[in-house]
Every structure is written in C-alpha cells, then in structure tokens.
Amino acid sequence: MVYKIRDKETGKVYEVTIDEETNEITVYDVKTGKPVKTVNMTIEELKEAGYEVEPV
C-alpha cells in the first residue's frame, strides 16, 4: 500500500510503500519516483519516530 509520510520536524514529505506482512517500507524520491532506501518498521513505529502517515 502507498502512503505519504511527513517529517514533523523538517516538513519533508516522502512517498513510501509498506508491505503489511513483512513491515518492509520502501522510501521513494517524490521528484524522480526512484527508491531511496528500504527500512523495516511498522506504521506505529513511523508515527513514534515523528512522522505523520497518510494513505494515498
């Protein structure tokens, strides 16, 4: 599923895909559409880390 996340401190917005089964999150560069990095976190962990998470 695709989400937009926003860093509450910097205001930067990222587009991510989240595999609900493995909790693998792939972060994409919004301008190029290319993957930047992959992390292993849940949506709740993202929120605790200071991100706003919205489904696209």
Score class of each variant (00 low, 15 high):
1 M>A: 10
2 V>N: 11
2 V>Y: 15
3 Y>T: 04
3 Y>R: 04
5 I>Y: 06
5 I>R: 00
5 I>L: 06
7 D>G: 01
7 D>N: 13
7 D>V: 04
8 K>M: 09
8 K>C: 11
8 K>W: 06
8 K>E: 02
8 K>D: 02
10 T>D: 03
10 T>S: 08
11 G>L: 03
11 G>Y: 02
11 G>I: 00
11 G>S: 03
12 K>L: 13
12 K>N: 10
12 K>H: 10
13 V>F: 07
13 V>K: 03
13 V>D: 04
14 Y>Q: 01
15 E>A: 12
16 V>Q: 00
16 V>P: 00
16 V>L: 11
17 T>K: 09
17 T>Q: 08
18 I>F: 15
18 I>Q: 04
20 E>F: 14
20 E>W: 14
21 E>N: 12
22 T>F: 06
23 N>W: 07
24 E>L: 14
24 E>N: 09
26 T>G: 01
26 T>H: 08
26 T>Y: 06
26 T>M: 06
27 V>H: 04
28 Y>W: 14
28 Y>E: 00
28 Y>L: 08
29 D>K: 01
29 D>M: 02
30 V>N: 09
30 V>W: 14
31 K>L: 15
32 T>Q: 03
32 T>Y: 04
32 T>G: 04
32 T>W: 05
32 T>D: 07
33 G>W: 07
33 G>T: 02
33 G>V: 01
33 G>Q: 06
34 K>S: 08
34 K>D: 08
34 K>Y: 11
34 K>T: 09
35 P>H: 10
35 P>M: 11
35 P>A: 12
35 P>W: 14
36 V>L: 15
37 K>N: 07
37 K>I: 13
37 K>H: 12
38 T>S: 08
39 V>A: 06
39 V>L: 15
39 V>R: 04
40 N>F: 15
40 N>I: 14
41 M>W: 08
42 T>Y: 02
43 I>D: 01
44 E>N: 12
45 E>G: 08
45 E>Y: 06
46 L>Q: 00
48 E>R: 12
49 A>Y: 10
50 G>A: 05
50 G>N: 06
50 G>M: 05
50 G>F: 05
51 Y>C: 08
51 Y>W: 15
52 E>W: 07
52 E>G: 04
54 E>T: 09
54 E>I: 12
55 P>W: 10
56 V>N: 08
56 V>F: 12
